[in-house]
Design a protein around this nucleic acid. Sequence first.
DNA 1: ATGAAAGCGCTAACAT
DNA 2: ATGTTAGCGCTTTCAT
Lengths: 328, 328
Amino acid sequence: MKKRLSISDIANNLGISVTTVSFILNDKAKEKRISEAMTKKVLDYVDKVGYKPNQLAKSLRTGKSKTLGLLVEDISNSFFANIADQIEKFAYDFGYHIVYCSMNNDVNRAKELIQLFYDRQIDGFIIAPTEGLTEVIQKLLKNNVPVVLFDRHLEDLETNFVISENHRGAYAGTCLLLNEKKSTRVGLVTIDSSQLQMRGRMDGYREAVELLDKEVLITQIVRAQPEDETILQIRDFIQENRLDGVLFATNYLAISGLKAIKRYNLPLEKLVSFDENALFSLVDPAVSAISQNLQEIARQVVHILIDEINGKSKGLVQVVVPCEVIVR
Amino acid sequence: MKKRLSISDIANNLGISVTTVSFILNDKAKEKRISEAMTKKVLDYVDKVGYKPNQLAKSLRTGKSKTLGLLVEDISNSFFANIADQIEKFAYDFGYHIVYCSMNNDVNRAKELIQLFYDRQIDGFIIAPTEGLTEVIQKLLKNNVPVVLFDRHLEDLETNFVISENHRGAYAGTCLLLNEKKSTRVGLVTIDSSQLQMRGRMDGYREAVELLDKEVLITQIVRAQPEDETILQIRDFIQENRLDGVLFATNYLAISGLKAIKRYNLPLEKLVSFDENALFSLVDPAVSAISQNLQEIARQVVHILIDEINGKSKGLVQVVVPCEVIVR
DNA sequence: ATGAAAGCGCTAACAT
DNA sequence: ATGTTAGCGCTTTCAT
């Protein structure tokens, strides 16, 4: 690899000092009263030879890396993939880059990754936390590392976060089934987890059902079990309770639910799922969606984090973003 | 933020030199004939205080960052999201990390990103290249930067790459429609692009159709147009040619096609798409898939790149991975 | 068997 | 208005 030019090469070739070059390159020419002529000369030369500062050295010196760490459960989940995409765009506008990692439901791996990002002088963390991460995140906070959680937050942890109106969304979705769709026996398929966003969704469901004096019917899917198991469990849930409407707490549960309906030919037509999916309008039966505002979530996450990095934060910021119900 | 321990803190606290600590930490204790006792003492202490070397400094010094750059068109496309996930896993096994970016169909942005990754001393690039990137990639190669392309490669560019058997896959998909499914008028919906993987798919389609003396019917969708336009274009294509079978060159085209069929109630039941999607079995009509072996592609990509980084490369490596036809 | 010191490329306090 | 230089934390050559 052709040896790259360093700032001292530039300085030498121009017969000036590195300081001057450094100041000019960091927009401090005015402040340091460097002559216009010199400024122009340096800028032109830098441009001509295509010199780019070594970011590593810069980071080492300044302690800033202009990089944010994004930790999600599973980047192949369309919800996370889409939000990662948005977050990256917003971060880019601020000159920040994203290093991302999937935790794949492995707490130890997640801890390792957080440590690793920390070791690489990441300027801030964006995390969709799983249970068991409380401690590591606590440690970050104690060290004053900027952190924003999204999609869910953790109890006992005073952090910034951006989440959706889970309770209200689930409530609206359940009402859609009970009222507009005239379902009478509506079940909730959720996961076996005490993650707060799931609790919110469950509570929203429960509130709507109880309001209309209907029976509360909930099944909790064990995470990390083979999908065929999940499909069976959903089938049994639907059949045993003679459901005529189902609310799914996540998009992948809805997909498993659709498979159950298809595979076992279940007579169930009224479905609502948290999170939108490009194909929900195309499947049969169509799935109505409680769609999260990914763009707004991403925007808030990035702004909050960057404000905090820049010390402009005014205490804890906790944002709840409304959902939109898409009726099909 | 609590100031982090540095290697010299460790050395001072232990009353020894940084050299010794460094050697021990880099598994050179044996080689440098450092006593067992000393080695153990240092290791224990490092463990006790939780010291972690500063990777930035390490990278600055060694010129290696243990990080790979992954550039895809759009991380929210399920094909790329899934492969990114796999690539990350394999890279992790080698102690490498992935910095990823979506290019979002913007050549300038892509060039900027490549430059930027390069500036950050990325050890190697994994790129699903778009047209117009030939030059930048050429530049990387000229500087001996390790590069592996995937999903497609570029003409006139002698690089490592890992792609799928596009020609054969499309051929098999078309035969599925013509033979098993008894379609008589099979069209191809592809994109307006001369990307090589698309050319391969088109040629495979063409070969199968011509072999059976059927009419070659192709429409090319303009990229970056609003989806409603695409849907209309597909509708017209299907209607005007009275198609009874369609091969879609990518999964997102298939999704638009399904929308067209649904929205305009088209009497078309025999569909095949490149790339699998969790919902293709659930939509009506179901979509058969020419599924790429993501895991194998990811595995190869990472291995080739890391071999090259370690100087173990035996010239250009160009791999073509078979597809699997999933009949529905 | 262990240590001193140079140097990776950069920033910024301190000279001049 | 511009230059000299220490130092960020690490690896590694050379010395002892």
